[in-house]
Design a binder for these strands. Structure first.
Lengths: 108, 108
DNA sequence: ATATTCGTCAACCGTTTGGTTAAGTGTTTT
DNA sequence: AAAACACTTAACCAAACGGTTGACGAATAT
């Protein structure tokens, strides 16, 4: 459980991975399409996606030969709770975010 | 500026450093006192404090031979802004936190 | 003056990270 | 059946990380 927090913060500490998460905010994407804007190999992006998956920030589902990457914002919950305890901050509004996603993309 | 976000998230990814921040939430502390509860060398803690300082999460002020460590919650602002952009989350309430700190410890 | 305390710095060590290229595994297309 | 596509894995590399011990500088206490 402490490990989860480690993994999440570590995953967020890399600019490439944060950029990937921002891209996935707009829509689910195939690995190749995720890699396209970056000036690094597909293998490197694949590793970044593994790290994001391990942190629970995304999930990946293979359909045919294409592996789709999907944002999992719920993984930010624990980091939010920690920040809340740290600074008496308000919790991030996760329910509102999920509603936002559903209304935007009709996800279940 | 992107680097700052890198540094902050990376600093938060280590459990020892998060524990240090929690300790400093209660009061300013000398380096030796910060190190006391941990089963590692003073030099190791000193390094952790350097990383927290580089991330802007704490400041250190030397008075006499004692170096005092002080929490700087404002450094969480950028991470908060990023999370906000990422998930349409509410911004963390930084003003409220500063008021909380002042009322609690009378800091200026 | 001397000893002690506070803390950093330097050198070292093993592991992890972020990248590479090359090969390999499935899946789809032709 | 063969070629192209979508990805992962393996082997490798340099740099950063997290820790150690030992020496050191500066401030304080005896």
């Amino acid at each position: 459980m402490n490990d989860a927090l480690d993994n999440t913060f570590a995953a967020l500490s890399d600019p490439t991975r944060r950029a990937i998460l921002s891209m996935l905010l707009e829509d689910d994407m195939a690995v190749t399409d995720v890699a396209e804007p970056f000036e690094m190999s597909l293998a490197a992006i694949s590793k970044h996606l593994t790290i994001l998956t391990r942190a629970g920030l995304i999930t990946q589902e293979k359909r045919g030969r294409v592996k789709w990457c999907k944002l999992e914002p719920g993984a930010l919950k624990d980091t939010s709770i920690w920040m809340q305890g740290f600074g008496q901050f308000e919790a991030v509004n996760l329910d509102a975010f999920e509603k936002f996603l559903k209304s935007e993309f009709g996800e279940s």
